[in-house]
């Protein structure tokens, strides 16, 4: 079991490199490595657990779509592939190879980002998402987690409604054909939300021993108000009067007061936590691996990091050290594989 914090650091590292480069070769390597992690996450569970949308399928859609959209709407670049009549609004003009490549890189970047979030979605249980929130925000965290679980439910519902309409003879040709889907989807979603709200109420969600009319903690109220005032005043001092030191000082005080108020509010919202996962050596290794992935890209990659097909289309450079460092993102694969072997051994 990999610790949730290790996964969040892994995601942070993955996002840093993905947002820090436009080199298609690096993006392809990163995408392939993260796809490996997704596969490793599927395999050891032996369950029919699947992401709502497979990252591979998403990449197959978004890369060509990105390329097509860009080539049709951006008419700059030296290598003209085709010319559409200027009379066609937006689309008219030269279609260039540079525009096509730039759009494909956009798509590649999006696909890699999607894969990184898919990893987090598959790896981190909702429980850990809730635990990250301050105790005072627990009900809000549950609502967020419910919203997260709502995504696959809604996707399944869309599929059901679409099929139900298809069996009544509706052909999905244009946007207008999708409109009738909206009403059953909306009603179904509201019905589901009501059912869940009822279930949460029946299970005593957000209940406490305190009676309804118990006095509110005035300390929390004044603390939050004071923190807000300090933050605003600090910001104003910095921006309006350029009093940087005083500004920062007040903002720091505001942040401390905010933290104190949250902590105090958390104490009045009692909650216990079921089984914290211990931090292991493997978690440290994964964290270090993820952190090391980022450094060479910023230190060594130079111009290769921010590749652009403009003004002239060239082949992107590939720094093998940077490529090697990216392997740090695959460390979870080894840990997941080890866990699988250990589980198989225990089963025997």
């Amino acid at each position: 079991m990999i610790h949730a914090t290790a996964w969040y650091i892994w995601l942070l590292a993955a996002l840093s490199v993905l947002l820090g480069t436009r080199n298609p070769l690096y993006l392809i390597v990163l995408l392939a490595e993260m796809a490996l992690v997704v596969e490793a996450l599927y395999a050891p569970t032996g369950e029919k657990l699947r992401a709502p949308v497979a990252p591979g399928r998403f990449a197959l859609f978004v890369v060509p779509a990105g390329a097509l959209f860009n080539v049709l709407t951006t008419h700059t670049g030296a290598t003209v592939l085709l010319r559409l009549p200027e009379a066609i609004p937006l689309l008219g003009g030269p279609l260039t190879l540079e525009g096509l490549v730039y759009g494909a890189i956009n798509g590649l970047s999006l696909a890699a980002l999607f894969t990184a979030f898919t990893v987090l979605n598959l790896a981190v249980p909702i429980r850990d998402l809730i635990r990250l929130a301050p105790r005072a925000f627990y009900p809000l965290a549950v609502v967020v987690s419910v919203a997260v679980t709502f995504v696959p439910t809604t996707l399944r519902q869309i599929q059901e409604v679409r099929e139900a309409q298809a069996v009544r003879g509706r052909r999905m040709r244009g946007l207008r054909d999708w409109l009738p889907l909206f009403m059953p989807l909306l009603i179904g979603g509201l019905e589901h939300a009501l059912q869940l709200a009822e279930a949460l109420t029946a299970r005593g969600f957000a209940s406490s021993d305190a009676p309804f009319d118990a006095p509110r903690d005035q300390g929390v109220r004044y603390g939050l108000l004071g923190a807000l005032l300090l933050l605003l005043t600090g910001g104003l001092l910095r921006l309006a009067w350029n009093l940087q030191v005083w500004g920062w000082l007040l903002m720091l005080l505001g942040a401390v007061l905010f933290g104190w108020a949250l902590r105090r509010a958390g104490r009045s919202a009692p909650r216990s936590t079921y089984r914290r996962i211990p931090w292991t050596r493997a978690d440290t290794l994964i964290t270090l691996g993820a952190a090391l992935t980022v450094i060479p890209l910023w230190l060594r990659a130079g111009a290769a990091r921010l590749y652009s097909p403009y003004p002239a289309l060239t082949l992107p450079l590939f720094d093998p050290w940077v490529g090697l460092a990216f392997l740090g993102l695959t460390l979870p694969v080894f840990q997941l594989y080890r866990a699988r072997v250990a589980a198989a051994g225990a089963a025997l």
Partner: peptide
């Protein structure tokens, strides 16, 4: 329609944590 968590034992612990 009544599950809040995504794994069996977390679902059982939900009301208790609460």
């Amino acid at each position: 329609a009544q599950f809040v968590m995504d794994r069996v034992e977390d679902e059982l612990a939900f009301a208790l944590e609460n």
